[in-house]
Amino acid sequence: MWPKTRRADDADDTVEINEFLHDEGARRLSVALRDRDWPTAREILTGADPEHFMYYMEFAASADGVEEWIPDVIRAEPNSTLPLLVRGARAVYWAWDARGSGTSDTVSQEQWKIWFQRLKLAENCLDEVIDRDPGCAEAWHYLVVLGRARQLPMEERWHRFNKLIEIDPTHLFGHEQMLNNLMPKWSGSTEAMFDFARTRAAACPGTNVPLIVAQAHLEHRWSEGGKAYLRRPEVSGEICAAAHTSVWHDDYRRSLLTPVLWNHFAYSLSVGRLFRPANALFDEIGDEWVRTAPWRSVERFTELRDWSREKDDDTGRDD
């Protein structure tokens, strides 16, 4: 009898989450924003290509305290729209800080007041950026977020999204935000959400955009009984096809955000029991590219990965 060995790749202590996608600029930006070091932040933001800029702006928007010092920068650099954009994007997240992420019945009168004040501030800043620089994709991206936050009419939400994709047709975060705008919980509908996801995925083969098909299903599972929904073949198969229109498409080029897609597709495909594609993605992720989203913890990631690999390992599996 040969010795039965446990799998060698059980060495989970090597798995580590890197929240900066191993991007030095993101790490430095995060430090600079914490230290209120605008010259460094400015240098990193102005030197970024559109994908990096989209990614970096999220650090600016979510950095505590930026709202306190960015007005001084605006005054000091009146000719630049960048600090104005940062202020507007930050105000969106700052509004959410006040509101919390619960359902509307968990929000007090006082919180609502602050929420709408900050959203208004955001809108004013972003409007001014657009007036001065109509080709600024990030301003349109945050205006799309405001579309649902401020409960604007659907037409206006679409207008903002269409402006965004005129400038950057495959802007991932903007697509994710428009998907949110169309969800039932933001006064959209299931049909509108899926129609958008499928239409845009088909329009953008070989890009990150088809990820929104998986995200639409992840959202819809809550109205369909949870995880079992993802195990329906018509659901898991569509997510698998989306991965093949995206990261596995012949025209796809790996870039900064690719590991984000690996993580999301690996999660939904392993939960959906499509082990072969899920495992191919787990191999890409390796120890290096694990993200917090969507796993929430390293333990959950390794648990699903090891289970998925084990299920796939034995031959003669036909059930």
Binding site: P233, G237, F275
Partner: peptide, 24 residues
């Protein structure tokens, strides 16, 4: 084929999305 079968665990009788049918 082994990959394709994961898309149709119920063979020709099960439901499948249009996109997955194309991939199949």
């Amino acid at each position: 084929l082994t990959s394709a079968w994961e898309l149709r665990p119920d063979g020709w009788t099960g439901r499948i999305s249009d996109a997955a049918a194309e991939l199949w």
